[in-house]
Design a protein around this nucleic acid. Structure first.
Lengths: 323, 323
DNA sequence: TTGAAAGCGCTAACAA
DNA sequence: TTGTTAGCGCTTTCAA
């Protein structure tokens, strides 16, 4: 910048003004400065600006696994929505590792990110509340002061239950995440079970280990389910597990949907890719993402009256795994 | 930091020393400073450090689509390898948008990232060579001064061809990306076609639109292929397209692998998720990622003799879509 | 309409 | 072993 100023024969102040289009500048001076910028191929140093303004336009996204279709889809939309508001995303893949998550959260604060979107959850509540940066939670209850954005899991549970009931199931099973972790997603399983009970339908639950995102884990769960519950005629689980169950059922020559109905949750591309395509409860990725960014942006701008619970309706996508 | 210094009754310099474990410090002073840090819940400002050191430990990852299984898998490994070297990743999803890619590249330079990993490719070579930051290319030839890291596509093409030949195919078809863009991946199609010619096997190629990553696009391609080339008995394409072809073939009651053999490319989870699982050429994600980070790191450290071509062997994963 | 100077929070010579 | 000071590249007040 000094070089530009020298070349143009003006002060750094003037250069700054040209760059930021601020204050009075004569056309002649502007031209001179712009010429010098061009000639020197000058690139403004955003780090210096960030230091002065104490604002970086960086947002940290902390998730368990970017290679999981749900998170990669959410990340895609978040990136788009952040970009539109001129934020950049630091991707923090916490894996299933609380140490890494902690280090990332510390790093994000040291790097003065403007805000944090967190879809991970391996630490104690206390750790999240101690964070001074604006923060929103994706599908996780971190504390009662941190806004949460999620799909309407209760509605999803009901839609799934309805569909399986409608399809004539008499003995269903749902695959649930660990009940030990308090997430909105538990609500869909509560609702699902409730509706089944109300309709006098047998309903088993199989618990999946928390934060296990591995296809071979799904395979063993699928095997376990179909061996241990041979009479089950309807299953409700996230798309990825559903796809694995379907595959295993096909190997065992169980007809889908005739003998076994399946309803997925998430609405990732997986549900369309497999054959038969999965009837699934699609999470509103677009709304979850845009709302997350919007809420976070308002938090950053210190607005008041920001809603703490932001729940968005899901949609049942008719596939070929139900009648 | 000033507050910490005041509280501890020392100079900011001393605080800096404690933080960085540098120079001589008496145990007593250190304790005092650490106490003050603790008490004030002080978090060092990395932005100020970055400004002084002219180093941010940030790396930009520019890709076309994070929700594509190939890129989300690569991103996962890259994040892990970068984290191990204390780099943070800024995720830049360029979509199919050259304007966005350009803006991102400018932004990354303004933000003084230490380096850029680029798996996108919508701009003219000139634009990439103008970038002063260290830069490596994933599976793209950007210029002859930018190191490229990719899988051994030629070998992959040969392995795929061998497999289909071995399985008895007489009339094969491969789905290729746009030939207009100069990427290493073209090499696998050249090799594939060559081997087929050498063995007197009919070989068609269908060109896929560049940078189209949408399952419904794949569906129309699948439909087109199976309608227009009803006699084809072997297909070679990326996993995602392969999965779509398989699904469509199943709808038409074409037996796989008896009537139609399929070999995929990539080795994403998709190949395991679908039924039958796809025989696929797995790209060495781990090596591509660790090599990219290693090369970039050496570029950042201004080492000499950094290899420009870094090609890693692929592996054929036997699935159920070939004999 | 422009320039001089202070300061964002930190590090690193140099001095004490 | 510790403090003083300059400066990283920029923005902004204040004065000219």
């Amino acid at each position: 910048m000094k070089d530009v100023a020298k070349k143009a024969g003006v002060s750094v102040n003037t250069v700054s003004r040209v760059l930021n289009n601020r204050g009075y500048i004569s056309d002649k001076t502007r031209k001179k400065v712009e010429g010098a910028i061009e000639e020197l191929n000058y690139i403004p140093n955003q780090v210096a600006r960030n230091l002065y303004k104490n604002k970086t336009n960086l947002i940290g996204l902390v998730i368990p696994d970017i290679s999981h279709p749900f998170f990669s889809k959410i990340a895609k939309f978040l990136e788009k929505d952040l970009y539109l508001k001129d934020y950049k995303m630091i991707l923090c893949n916490a894996t299933e590792n609380s140490e890494k998550e902690k280090e990332y959260l510390t790093m994000l604060q040291e790097n003065k990110v403007d805000g944090i979107i967190i879809g991970s959850h391996t630490l104690e509540t206390e750790f999240y509340t101690k964070i001074r940066s604006p923060i929103v939670a994706l599908d996780r209850y971190l504390s009662d002061s941190i806004p949460v954005i999620s799909s309407n899991h209760a509605q999803g549970g009901r839609l799934a239950a309805e569909k399986l009931i409608e399809s004539g199931c008499k003995n269903v099973l749902q695959v649930v995440g660990s009940r030990k972790v308090d997430t909105p997603s538990n609500e869909r399983h509560v609702e699902f079970e409730k509706m089944m009970k109300e309709n006098g339908i047998k309903c088993n639950s199989v618990e999946l280990e928390w934060n296990k995102f591995n296809f071979s884990d799904y395979e063993s769960v699928s095997k376990y389910i179909l061996e241990e519950y041979p009479d089950v005629d309807g299953i409700f689980s996230v798309d990825l597990v559903a796809s694995s169950i379907i595959k295993y059922a096909q190997k065992k020559n169980i007809q889908i949907p005739e003998e076994l109905k399946v309803v997925g949750y998430d609405g990732t591309d997986i549900s369309q890719i497999v054959n038969p395509s999965i009837t699934t409860i699609r999470q509103p990725f677009e709304l979850i993402s845009s709302s997350s960014v919007d809420i976070l942006d308002r938090l950053i701008k210190k607005e008041k009256g920001i809603p703490l619970k932001n729940i968005f309706d899901v949609q049942l996508i008719e596939g070929e795994t139900t009648l």
